[in-house]
Simulated assay, not measured.
Amino acid sequence: MRRCSHRFFSDPGRPPASGGSVEELIADIALIFHWPPAVLLEMELAELRMWRELAVSRWNDINRVAE
């Protein structure tokens, strides 16, 4: 399987996992876990940040370039 050579979530222009708007957190989580926004809008900010960190980890693991 071919892996991507870039790391979407490590783009220097993106806010860190603990920052950014609620909309950015929701978009990143939904991209990886395919959860509907209605479910994510019910979560507290701390929970959204935790799930985004997990989404970042999953994305980077899946798209890691073999050395």
Score class of each variant (00 low, 15 high):
1 M>G: 06
1 M>T: 05
1 M>R: 02
1 M>V: 04
2 R>S: 04
2 R>Y: 04
2 R>D: 08
2 R>I: 10
3 R>Y: 10
3 R>G: 01
4 C>Q: 11
4 C>I: 04
4 C>F: 07
5 S>Q: 04
6 H>V: 08
6 H>F: 05
7 R>P: 00
7 R>E: 07
7 R>N: 08
8 F>W: 12
8 F>L: 14
8 F>K: 13
8 F>T: 13
9 F>D: 11
11 D>T: 07
11 D>R: 07
12 P>M: 01
14 R>G: 00
14 R>I: 04
15 P>G: 02
15 P>F: 08
15 P>I: 05
16 P>W: 02
16 P>L: 09
16 P>E: 07
16 P>A: 04
16 P>Q: 03
17 A>F: 03
17 A>I: 10
18 S>D: 11
18 S>V: 02
19 G>L: 11
19 G>D: 15
19 G>K: 15
20 G>S: 11
22 V>Y: 12
23 E>A: 15
24 E>M: 10
24 E>W: 12
24 E>L: 09
24 E>A: 06
25 L>W: 07
25 L>P: 00
25 L>D: 15
25 L>K: 11
27 A>D: 15
29 I>G: 01
29 I>A: 03
29 I>Y: 06
30 A>G: 08
30 A>C: 02
30 A>I: 01
30 A>K: 10
30 A>L: 01
31 L>S: 12
31 L>Q: 07
32 I>M: 10
32 I>Q: 06
33 F>T: 03
33 F>W: 09
34 H>Q: 09
34 H>I: 01
34 H>N: 08
35 W>V: 01
35 W>T: 02
35 W>R: 03
36 P>A: 08
37 P>T: 10
37 P>Q: 13
38 A>I: 10
39 V>N: 08
39 V>T: 14
40 L>I: 09
42 E>T: 08
42 E>S: 03
43 M>I: 00
43 M>S: 05
43 M>T: 02
44 E>Q: 13
44 E>W: 01
45 L>M: 15
45 L>I: 15
45 L>A: 09
46 A>P: 07
47 E>I: 00
47 E>D: 12
47 E>S: 03
48 L>S: 14
49 R>T: 14
49 R>M: 06
50 M>Y: 14
51 W>Q: 06
51 W>K: 03
51 W>E: 12
51 W>H: 11
51 W>T: 00
52 R>M: 05
52 R>Q: 04
53 E>M: 03
54 L>V: 00
54 L>H: 10
54 L>W: 08
55 A>S: 10
55 A>M: 06
55 A>K: 02
56 V>I: 12
56 V>F: 02
56 V>P: 00
58 R>E: 14
58 R>A: 13
58 R>Y: 11
58 R>M: 13
59 W>A: 11
59 W>N: 14
60 N>T: 14
60 N>W: 05
61 D>W: 06
61 D>K: 05
61 D>A: 10
61 D>M: 09
61 D>I: 06
62 I>S: 06
63 N>E: 14
64 R>C: 02
64 R>F: 09
64 R>T: 10
65 V>Y: 03
65 V>M: 10
66 A>H: 09
66 A>D: 12
67 E>Q: 06
